[in-house]
Nucleic acid binder design. Structure first.
Length: 427
RNA sequence: GUGGCUGUGGUGAAGCGGUUAACACAAACGACUGUGACUCGUUCAUCCGUGGGUUCGAAUCCCAUCAGCCACCCCA
């Protein structure tokens, strides 16, 4: 048996890569409109970084990280998400000194040891953004607007934006206690997972899919009714700015997060089209994280989107690239001329395909058709002696003649064929 | 990590104990007498994810293993 790849680690083959490039290029283009700059950080970080940022009681840190000891005895981990590394870099290089606002984006592979499914792999890719240094809700609304803008640019209008506020370190503990009080009498109705999490993370019950938990949490106190004055004001203003920007959203007071660092605004972009992998992008505010990791007392907000999931939402159409010209030839001398022309034309920016083996003319024409070449140049022996060859517009099926000269050929490719009398293609 | 389903050529698939392992698409070549898309012809799985077992005989039954999918879990 031949060697195979690792489970959950996928090859992205040439046909698919075009979609990826489109997604990445769109992200870069849109994000730069909003003033974001790319940052590239390593794939490996010290294990401690993730334990401290994501939270060591979370599932990600507890059982999904690719952690190991390197030859120097250091505990290191393949990044399971992007925020921690970006923030670490922000702090380490004191980026806040150069500018009190940092607007960064990144893209690349992330790693989590999960059971693979469609839209969920062990090596997966995220495009993410982080803003450090602004607590004003304008930036919350701007980040969300940019995220929706990005999806709109891809022609994806179906994912819906859901927002919520998780409160801050002042009001969340109170809410949590309140919710625990509410759940205490209904503990029996909860699923085993939520029973287990009752102490550690009772909020999860709000988001649980089991019918028992759904019923038990009907009438549960809502986070949004229990925000402190500051958080409540922040959420209201965020919504006002979203309205002002024309960004559509819905409020989902049951949305919770799996990473511990989130505060205040949280959000998800959800789709119906990916089965249980419904979140295609998600993020939120993390006002304490930077300080907790040893940086300045800076607020932050960011999101990450799953590239695999976005690619899955894209249609297959329209990702082919058509060569400008296919050169068909007959005989060795014509082959040499074809090669010479191809080289010159390619150097001047024209994309040219050729049949390297010089098969039959029919075979070469078929290949030109398969490549969807716009034009085909046909060089035979008499064309060679005449110094001019037939050039065919493959879409229109008409044929003309052109001198065997790179510049004349390029000119025809630009302005089209003028059919020569007497000769010419049949439809 | 838990539960369920699936695994036949590049793709979609038929076959369900004894067949030359159908068929369609794709692909390669050829015919239509130097030029693609239509039509026609030829070729294309010594082999049925892998390893073992049962049997006179297995792609078809059993076991294991690997992989994929779906749901849970979690999350982007």
């Amino acid at each position: 048996m031949a060697l195979t790849g690792i489970k959950g680690f996928n090859d992205i083959l040439p046909g698919e890569v075009r979609k990826w490039q489109h997604v990445e290029a769109t992200a870069r283009r849109v994000f730069e409109i909003y003033g974001f700059a790319e940052i590239r950080v390593p794939v490996l970080e010290k294990t401690e970084l993730f334990a401290r940022s994501i939270g060591d009681a979370t599932d990600i840190v507890e059982k999904e990280m690719y952690s190991f000891t390197d030859k120097g005895g250091n505990a290191i981990t393949l990044r399971p998400e992007g925020t921690a590394g970006v923030i670490r870099s922000f702090i380490e290089h004191k980026l806040h000194v150069a500018d009190s606002v940092a607007k960064l984006y990144y893209l690349g592979p992330m790693f989590r040891y999960e059971r693979p499914q469609k839209g969920r792999y062990r090596q997966f890719h995220q495009i993410g953004v982080e803003v450090a240094g602004v607590s004003d809700p304008k930036v919350d609304a701007q980040v969300l607007t940019m995220l929706c803008h990005f999806f709109a640019e891809l022609g994806l209008t179906e994912p819906r934006l859901q927002i919520n506020s998780l409160g801050c370190h002042d009001c969340r503990p109170d809410y949590r206690r309140k919710l625990q009080d509410f759940l205490r009498e209904r503990l029996d109705a909860l699923c085993d997972d939520c029973k287990r999490r009752y102490e550690t993370n009772p909020l999860r019950a709000l988001d649980c899919k089991s019918t028992g938990c759904k019923e038990a949490t009907v009438g549960a106190p809502s986070v949004l009714d229990n925000l402190c004055a500051g958080c409540d004001d922040h959420f209201t203003r965020t919504r006002n700015y979203l309205d002002s920007a024309g960004t559509a959203y819905e409020i989902n007071p049951r949305m919770v997060r799996g990473l511990d660092y989130y505060t205040r605004t949280t959000f998800e972009l959800v789709t119906e089209r990916l089965g249980s992998q419904s979140a295609v992008a998600a993020g939120g505010r993390y006002d304490r994280l930077i300080e907790e990791l040893g940086g300045p007392d800076y607020p932050g907000i960011g999101f990450a989107l799953g590239v695999e999931r976005v690619v899955l939402l894209l249609d297959d159409e329209g990702y082919g690239n058509r060569p400008d010209l296919f050169i068909a030839f007959h005989g060795e001398p014509a082959g040499n001329e074809a090669f010479r022309l191809m080289s010159r034309l390619q150097r001047s920016g024209v994309s040219v395909e050729i049949d390297y083996e010089g098969k039959s003319l029919k075979s070469q024409m078929r290949r030109a058709d398969k490549f969807k070449a716009r034009y085909t140049l046909i060089i035979g022996e008499d064309e060679l002696t005449r110094g001019a060859a037939a050039i065919k517009d493959m879409d229109r099926g008409i044929q003309g003649e052109v001198a065997l000269d790179p510049e004349r050929i390029a000119a025809v490719l630009r302005s089209g064929i003028e059919p020569t009398a007497g000769e010419g293609g049949q439809p």
